[in-house]
Design a protein around this nucleic acid. Structure first.
Length: 297
DNA sequence: AAACAAACCTGTGCGC
DNA sequence: TGCGCACAGGTTTGTT
């Protein structure tokens, strides 16, 4: 569930309320949540450490500690980070509890950071960044971050060029661009008026420009709205609040409904590699095969 | 290179 | 009301 806008919203919450605080105690309720290493490794790696920053790379949260290690959290499908008061009732599937010392400068008392994750696909790990190649090798494989990296249509064109893969799976491939997931891929392609089955290499210059602009615009708007909270309310921010970008979805989850953009087409659902794709066949027409490169430019 | 299937888990919504 | 099935924001691994 959490894609770049949701993870970024959580990161901002951490930056505002958790960075600078010392960890006094760590509880691990379910080993699977810390499977990369172990409960002991997490407890020993965090105990007494102070979180010095809150970063993000794609959908990964990366929090450096004053010990030199880094706390890495991935929420996967159903993970949540919640900032709560000690003694508050913990929701089911609260797998890791990180107790934070009071911070008088911000008038914050003792609090707890809870990692909650029903499906347990997510994970929490502390690793030494000097050994990231061994302990978190996937980070090096991540592609450009739509927000953190400065890049434009030219770089996007280079990633797309010559490929036969369709745009939907292209956008989901974290090795090229990191952070886009199923919701925003559909919304971005709709905003760019591109059919999800368009071969990547078939885009012309104007298409690439639209795709790049749509990516920036949709993701920025979603962050501004605090992300998307779907009906099951799996995603909430650090304080447990819903996002509201779901109200702006134009195709995601709307199969069979009339297109909100053109008012003529009806949103269709496709399946790519077992995942749903939603698009408007009127707004997002599939162009014919990859054209021979236009001569001259 | 790229498409696909399965695996990892739990919960919810829907048709019957 | 209950049962069984499809499906869900992600990623990895292995197979065509």
């Amino acid at each position: 569930m959490p894609e770049l806008p949701e993870v970024e919203t959580v990161r901002r919450g951490l930056a505002a309320l958790v960075v600078g605080r010392r960890i006094d105690r760590v509880e691990v309720g379910r080993e699977r949540a810390v499977r990369r290493t172990s409960a002991d490794a997490l407890v020993h790696g965090l105990n007494g450490a102070t979180i010095t920053a809150a970063g993000r790379r794609g959908k990964y949260l990366l929090c450096p500690l004053d010990t030199g290690d880094t706390l890495m959290i991935h929420l996967r499908m159903t993970g949540q980070l919640l900032l709560s008061e000690p003694g508050a009732e913990r929701p089911p599937h609260t797998h890791v509890v990180i107790a934070l010392a009071a911070d008088p400068t911000r008038r914050l008392g003792e609090q707890e950071l809870w990692f909650v994750d029903p499906r347990t696909f997510g994970e929490v790990v502390v690793f030494d960044p000097d050994h990231a190649d061994v302990e978190a090798p996937e980070l090096a494989l991540l592609g450009l971050d739509p927000l953190a990296d400065e890049w434009g249509p030219a770089e996007l064109a280079a990633l797309l060029g010559g490929r036969t893969t369709h745009l939907k799976p292209f956008l989901l491939d974290q090795r090229r661009i990191a952070g886009i997931g199923n919701i925003y891929a559909d919304e971005i392609l709709h905003a760019a008026r591109l059919h999800p089955d368009t071969p990547a290499g078939a885009l012309r210059r104007a298409d690439v420009r639209r795709l790049h602009a749509a990516m920036q615009r949709i993701l920025a708007a979603a962050i501004k709205a605090g992300g998307s909270t779907l009906r099951d309310a799996q995603y909430v921010d650090l304080m447990g609040s819903d996002g509201w970008y779901q109200d702006e979805h134009r195709v995601y989850g709307r199969a069979g409904e009339r297109c909100l953009t053109c008012g003529r087409g009806f949103v269709r659902r496709l399946v790519h590699n077992g995942r749903s794709t939603h698009y408007c066949p009127v707004c997002q027409r599939l162009r014919a095969s990859p054209t021979r490169r236009a001569s001259g430019r």
